[in-house]
Design a protein around this nucleic acid. Structure first.
Lengths: 119, 119
DNA sequence: CCCAGACATCGACATCTGTCAATATCGATG
DNA sequence: CATCGATATTGACAGATGTCGATGTCTGGG
């Protein structure tokens, strides 16, 4: 609970604090952005993103991705799903194989946003 | 386990895959970066970072930060510790009060790195 | 020297997360 | 249509994470 609800007069606001020079990130924006960051805040998923982006034509099939890690196939599939659900990877099935592609715009937006916080 | 350990000759490499056009992020880099992303992948910590950066002189005292959330003081203290341990916030005690300041360079590095993944 | 206030640490708890083995689904092929 | 290979889904489990109340540690003032 905030001190301002204790019936103090405004004048009693303590002197330790500096004023705001701009509006901080609103709570709803933070709630919207945090899941995207959670999606990439894992070493395996970071490498998956980078690996997909490093393939010719910007796309990679799952069999390539599986072989790049010492992890079970379901685990890689799970990480790909997390990235896809977050909107960071596009998914396309062609015949037996599934190809993933990086949504560059989404990543770029995140990068811009981070730069903006530091300003 | 990778297919290449099953005794297949190299020629049998399946045809579903496209080649790499650049080196993907190395595992050790991913292990180093992921903790930084984990640190900011939380709505409260995102708002804390933004709130500190939005204060005059780029610093804010904890009392200001506590009042901005409907969370207990230990919880805010915990989040500040996470950000500080990650190297994203500097901490300075002046008298009774503690002031936090954003390490802009660290955030900028992260932003650059994200932009680089999409490339 | 003791007290009050600012902040951190501790211990506990519910929830979320990463991982695997087992199994299901789906498309090509004989 | 029976089967095989490529991916996805499910269920289970250990460990990490966010939150709180209680308590500890400083620092300045009486």
């Amino acid at each position: 609970m905030s001190k301002s609800q204790l019936g103090l007069t405004p004048v009693e606001a303590v002197a330790c604090c500096s004023p705001l020079t701009r509006e901080p990130m609103p709570a709803d924006a933070a709630e919207r952005i945090a899941p995207l960051l959670k999606a990439i805040a894992d070493p395996v998923r970071l490498r998956l993103l980078s690996l997909v982006a490093s393939h010719a034509d910007g796309e990679a099939c799952v069999c390539d991705l599986n072989d790049a890690f010492e992890l079970s196939q379901p685990t890689i599939s799970h990480h790909l799903k997390v990235l896809h659900d977050a909107g960071l990877l596009d998914r396309e099935k062609r015949g037996v194989w599934v190809y993933y592609r990086v949504r560059a715009a989404a990543l770029a937006d995140l990068a811009t946003l981070l730069g903006g916080v530091a300003a």
